[in-house]
Write a protein that binds this DNA or RNA. Sequence first.
DNA 1: AATGAAATTTAAACCAT
DNA 2: ATGGTTTAAATTTCATT
Lengths: 170, 170
Amino acid sequence: MGKNLFQLSEGDKTLVNLFKKDGRISFTDVAAKLGLSVSTVRNRYNKLVEEGVLHILGWIDPTKTGFNAYNRVTIEISPSHLIERVAKELIKIKEVSFLALTSGPADIEINLICKDNRHLLEVMQKRIFTIEGVKNTHSTVYYNVYKWADHAVDLPFAETDTAKTNSEKN
Amino acid sequence: MGKNLFQLSEGDKTLVNLFKKDGRISFTDVAAKLGLSVSTVRNRYNKLVEEGVLHILGWIDPTKTGFNAYNRVTIEISPSHLIERVAKELIKIKEVSFLALTSGPADIEINLICKDNRHLLEVMQKRIFTIEGVKNTHSTVYYNVYKWADHAVDLPFAETDTAKTNSEKN
DNA sequence: AATGAAATTTAAACCAT
DNA sequence: ATGGTTTAAATTTCATT
């Protein structure tokens, strides 16, 4: 579980927050904002990226590009030993934007980003119902997303909630 | 709905896919990979960003930084006219990484990224149950996330599913 | 819309503390 | 772990088709 835990220092957090807002901010700008040298910023950045802690990723706003059917689909699998195998099949589907194993009553949750309901239905019927072990599914529509790009982007260490877990190091 | 729809050309898609993998890839590299000039890449990139289609964002892997309690929480609101007001309260909570209005039986779904179950319980009791209009909640544990950073990052136009919607404009 | 070239800014690599 | 210096590379601006 917490094996390769990376302790973010307070400095790391402020640095990370700048990259979260603008993934292409220059090290020079970060250094100026934080009052650090460019080298230091670079070193910290590299460490975070090398450790797999920080990732800079492009994100496309689905609603701006004609993908207006966003759904949660929970899936029950039987027999249960097929769960991981089904999961591995599901992540191959490009419309699947998220997949997690969950507590019951279902076993797997996926999120599907589709153009419209016709597209959604097609994915469900041709790609999901056909997988061996998929017992039943339940779909929920995401009508309107309020926090969207932040999905899995923001971690709760924004401003005040500082280092209880980081008090020892740095 | 589809008012400000942005038609991604095939060129845009290949460009975007490079930025999705590595948000800090240089325009020079992109140009080399696509056989275009740096200026062209820059122009396309700027257009996509200015239109709000493409975003380059930092993302922190919660599991690497001690956030091991990731949950879906569905929330029923009553009376119903409070839904939007409750949503606006909820997005202020920094542990809320995602919020959408959903089809029933609940009204709102949030995702919560917490350090552990103690942290989760604290957020639920002190921040969520206390909001006026929150009738009841139902939590589901995300035991293990298979597709994670791709959450809201990948759109399903990876390789083959090319331009049916983009055939006219390039 | 796509490009080329010059001027400016930034990043990378190295070394030092 | 942080910072300074030099060299290399990328970005920006402006002009051109």
